[in-house]
Design a protein around this nucleic acid. Structure first.
Lengths: 216, 216, 216, 216
DNA sequence: CATGAATGAGCATTCATTCAT
DNA sequence: GATGAATGAATGCTCATTCAT
C-alpha cells in the first residue's frame, strides 16, 4: 500500500520548513494589515490553515514571530536590490534606476511599509534584539557610493554626497508619500494613487534627486 | 444637603473643558507610545488622573478619541506653521526655513510621527470620517506655492515645481529619517540621533532641496 | 420610584465587600478541592456567581487570590483559638482542650489542611510575601507557655518543654492522621475516619502528650 | 538494510528498563517540585532527556505515571525501613532509632513529603486504584508491635499502645514540622531548619514519645 | 525503541465598554 | 460632572495527548 507517491516536499504534511514558511507568510499579511498590536494569533493560524499551537511551537511567541517576519521582509528587499547591477549603468541612469526600484518595490509590497511602521513604533526593539541586524544593511549603500564617486569623476555629479544620506532620502521620498497616501489624499482632496499622480510623483522624485546631484 | 455652591454654568464648563483637554493630552501620549491597537483606555484614564467612564462620556469610544487626538495634532502643527511668515523672506531663505521648521517640529514632537503612523496603518479611516479633514490642509502649501513662484520670477528657482510635491518631499525627508531612526541606527551601526548626525542630516536635506530648486 | 428598600448590605448588588467575601469563599473551596495548580479561575467565578473579571478586579491574579485565601484561613483559626481561654483551666485540662480543639477544627475544616498543603508545596512563598505573616503567629503559643509553666509550678508537668515544639507536635499529630487518612486507610485496609477510629485517635493523642508531660 | 546488529532481547530490555527508570526519576522530581497539577509532561521529558512520546509509551498517561512514582516512593522507604533491624535492639533504643530514621529519611527525601501531599490532595485516588496498595503497608508496624510488647514485658513501656497509632504519630511529628517548615519559619520568624533547630526538634520528639511510653 | 510534527480543548488574563448611583 | 462596580467577548498562550514514520 503505497502511502505517498507524491514528489517530496510538494504536498507532504509534517513538513517543518513548509509549515514555518506558511506561518511566516500568514503572519506577514496579518501584521501588515493590523500592526503588531492589532494582529491576532488566531487569525494568523487561520490564514495559514494550521493549528495555532504550531505557531508557538516554531516561533515561541507573538513578538518573536514578528521579529522573524521583519527579518524576512528585509531579506526579501535586499535580495531584490542585489539584482540591480547599478555599477554597470551610467551614474545618472543608475541613480534613476534606484529611485524607480524603491518606488516600485514599495508599491508592490505595501506590507513592507506597514511592517516598518510597526517596527518603528516599538523603537526597533525587534531589530535591536536580532543578531542578524547588521546583515540587513543594504548592499546598495556601498554600490551607491561607488556610483556617486564615478559620477563625480566624470563631471556628472557634485562631490561630497554621503551615500547613506542619499539612500535614506530616496527611500523617504517614496515612503512618506505612499505610507501617508490615504491621509494626504483625504487632506488634499485628491487621489494620490491614481496612475497620473503616480507618474507625477516618480518624475518629481527623479528631478529632485538628479537635479540636486547635477548642480555644480 | 447643598451639593454645589459654586456659580452655575461658567465654572462647570471650564472644568469640562479642562477634563477634555487632560484626556486628550493623556490619550495623545498613550497612542503615541503604543499605537492605536496597543493603547489602553485604562492607562489613558490613569495618565489623565480621571475616571475611565469620563472618557466615554466625552469621546464615546476609543476610535473617536483617537480621531480627536489626530485632529488636535494636526491643528497643533498647522498653528505653528502659520507663524512661519515665509512670504516675508527671500525665497531660498524661506524654503530653508520650512525645512528647518519641519525637521525641528518632528524632533520636538516625536508623538506626531507615531500618530501619523497609526493613522496610516488604519488607512486614514479616522481622517476620512472627520468632517474637518480638509481644514487640516496645510496653509503652508499655498504659501509655498507663492514662494516658489516668486523665486522663479527672481531667477533663483527653476520653474514647474508642484508645491504639493515639494511639501510632501520636505516632510518625507525628515519623517523617514526620524521615524526610522532606531531601525536605521541598528542597521547602519551608527547613532543617527547624535548632535553631529542631526546637523549633517539637516545640511543634506537643505542641500538636496535647494540644490534642486537652484538648478537651471 | 423607590429602587431599593432592602436593608443596607443585605441584598445589594454592587457591594464591593460582599463581592470580595463571596469570591474568597468560593476560592477557598476551589483551592481546597484542587490545590493551587488544579484550581480554575472559571470555576471560582462560577461558584461565586460572579463575573470572572471581577476576581481580577479585586485580587489582581490567581496567586494573590490564593494568598488572600490563605491569610483568611489563618485568621479564622486564630480567631477560634483565641476563644479557648486556656488560662482559666487546670493545666492538664487546658492541654487536653487544645488537643481536642485542634483535632476538631481540622475535622470541621478539612479545607484548612489542603490549603496548608498547597502553601507548603510552594514553599510558603505566599506567606513569605505577605506583610501580615507575623500576625498569623498563633496567640496560643504564648498561652501554652503560661499553661506549661503553671503546670510545672504545680508539680503536674515536667519542666523544660518548649511551647513552640509542643504546639507543632499537637498540630502534627492531628494533621498527619487526617491529611493522610485516605492514603493510610488504603494501606492499612481499615477506615481511619470511622467514629470508633476517631475516638481512638483522640485518646491516643491525649495520652501521648499528657503522658509525656506528666512524666517526672 | 540492517537495522540492528545487536544481540536480540537482553540488551533491548535493559534499555527499556533504563528508560523507564530515567523517566520515573525525572517524574518524581517534577511531581515533587510542582505537585500533580503543576507538573508538566514536557518538563519531565526534558529532565529525562527523552522524547515525550516515550512517557506515554511506557506509562499511558500523566495520572498513571504519578501512580507509578508514588508506588516507587513507598517501595523505597519500605526498603530502607526493613534494614532497621529493630528487634535486635533494646526496646527504648529501637523506638528512638525509628524516630531518628523517620526524621532523617524525610530530611533526605523531601520529595517524599511533597508526593504524599499531592497524593492526599487527590484523596489517595492513585493508591486506591493501585493493586499493590496493601503491599505498601509498612513491615515496621508489625515489628513496632513486637518492640512495644517486649518493652512492656520488660517493664520499660506502658501497655495498651496501638502500634499503628504510634507509628502514625511518629511519622506525623516529623512530617508536619518538615512539611510546614517554610510556613512555620515565616510565622514564627525563626529558621526551623538550622542545625540547632533540627537537633532540638529531634530531641523533643524522642522525649515526647519515650516519655509517654515510659510513664507508668 | 524512539522521535519531531501536529492538535483540540482549555487557561489565566485583558479589554473596551456599561451600569447604577 | 464624576465614579466605583461589573461584565461578555476575546487574547495570547499552555497542556496533555496523538500522528506518522
Amino acid at each position: 500500500m503505497a502511502r505517498d507517491t507524491s514528489p517530496p516536499g510538494e504536498e507532504r504534511l509534517r513538513d517543518a520548513d513548509r509549515s514555518q514558511s506558511t506561518i511566516l507568510a500568514a503572519a506577514r499579511d496579518e501584521f501588515a494589515e493590523h500592526g503588531l498590536g492589532g494582529a491576532r494569533v488566531d487569525r494568523i493560524a487561520e490564514r495559514a490553515g494550521l493549528n495555532k499551537r504550531l505557531i508557538y511551537y516554531y516561533f515561541e511567541d507573538k513578538e518573536k514571530l514578528f521579529q522573524a517576519v521583519l527579518e524576512l521582509a528585509y531579506r526579501d528587499i535586499r535580495t531584490e536590490e542585489m539584482k540591480l547591477r547599478l555599477l554597470e549603468l551610467d551614474p545618472p541612469i543608475a541613480v534613476r534606476r534606484l529611485i524607480e526600484f524603491t518606488w516600485q518595490y514599495y508599491l508592490d509590497h505595501p506590507e513592507f511599509l506597514t511592517l516598518l511602521n510597526s517596527a518603528n513604533l516599538h523603537r526597533a526593539r525587534h531589530l535591536a534584539e536580532s543578531k542578524r541586524a547588521r546583515e540587513l544593511n543594504s548592499p546598495v549603500i556601498e554600490t551607491l557610493g561607488a556610483v556617486l564617486e564615478r559620477g563625480r569623476k566624470e563631471g556628472q555629479f557634485r562631490g561630497g554626497v554621503d551615500p547613506v544620506q542619499l539612500y535614506v532620502s530616496i527611500a523617504g521620498l517614496s515612503y512618506f508619500y505612499l505610507s501617508n497616501s490615504h491621509t494626504l489624499s483625504a487632506i488634499f482632496g485628491r487621489d494620490l494613487l491614481s496612475p497620473k499622480a503616480r507618474t507625477e510623483r516618480l518624475s518629481h522624485m527623479a528631478d529632485l534627486v538628479l537635479g540636486y546631484l547635477a548642480a555644480s
